[in-house]
């Protein structure tokens, strides 16, 4: 169930200017340093570098500079249960829980400067930019809905994800190399799960969304790690038998090597 390899030719991925406002005079060209992050036995995290350039499309007036960039990286969707401990009969147990449905396993929002200086708070909310504005649907009884931003479970969930560096909000992570060239480093922690990571780059000018560009990279296990992880899930019984045999072999070898007679 691996997604097809992104073609290597897509070194420079310039995608459709989705929803670009009328009169947009710029195109956004972005590229990632890699489209595949490989988890092998020495994996301790990685960095994917995002490059981008603002190009004039020749149609409108030429603007030089004054651009802002906000990049959002969304990892594979997961359903996660957040639990809260409470004291019961003197001991602390997980008493209450909320289930977050199909929320990003990884989320990074990187910008050139504090988001509220780039666009208005109202617009940030509409574009779902920032940890406070991201939609985190919760299972509430039979319904699924997002809750107010100061909901304790929502806040705790964001805090835990941030502590584990799975959710990142960094308003200074995108560097403008020149008025029209930018670069950002997307931190991928060791814990980041395998799957497709979508990178959505938005270009702003004067508090307005000019255009956007999307691309993606994939995190995948390779070699021994992949072999073990796939075997454990796909052939659980066989995997268990092989592991048990391995244990017996180790024990038998030890009794031969360290034989005391």
């Amino acid at each position: 169930m691996r997604r097809a390899l992104l073609p290597a030719v897509a070194a420079l991925v310039a995608l459709l200017p989705l929803g670009a406002p009328a009169g947009a005079a710029e195109r956004l060209v972005t590229s990632l340093s890699t489209h595949r992050v490989l988890i092998n036995s020495v994996f301790t995290g990685a960095e994917v570098v995002l490059f981008g350039a603002v190009e004039s499309d020749g149609a409108g007036p030429v603007r030089r500079g004054g651009f802002d960039v906000i990049a959002t990286v969304v990892g594979p969707r997961q359903t996660l249960k957040t639990l809260r401990k409470d004291r019961m009969l003197g001991i602390w147990i997980n008493a209450d829980s909320r289930t977050f449905i199909d929320v990003p396993a990884y989320l990074a929002i990187l910008g050139t400067r504090p988001f509220d200086q780039v666009v208005s708070a109202e617009r940030l909310r509409r574009l779902q930019i920032g940890l406070n504005n991201v939609v985190l649907p919760q299972q509430i009884g039979p319904d699924v809905a997002d809750v107010v931003t100061d909901d304790p479970f929502r806040r705790a969930f964001l805090r835990l994800k941030t502590e584990r560096r799975l959710y990142v909000e960094d308003a200074r992570a995108v560097t403008m190399l020149s008025p029209t060239l930018f670069q950002a480093s997307i931190p991928v922690p060791a814990e980041a799960p395998v799957g497709t990571y979508e990178v959505d780059v938005k270009l702003f000018h004067d508090g307005m969304l000019v255009t956007r560009s999307t691309s993606a990279f994939e995190i995948t296990k390779v070699g021994f790690e992949r072999f073990v992880a796939t075997a454990a899930v796909d052939n659980g019984l066989l995997y268990g038998i092989v592991t048990a045999m391995m244990a017996l072999m180790t024990g038998w070898l030890a009794s031969i090597v360290f034989r005391r007679d």
Partner: peptide, 8 residues
Amino acid sequence: EMFSFRLM
């Protein structure tokens, strides 16, 4: 830490 989360 009162909260924890886990994969379903």
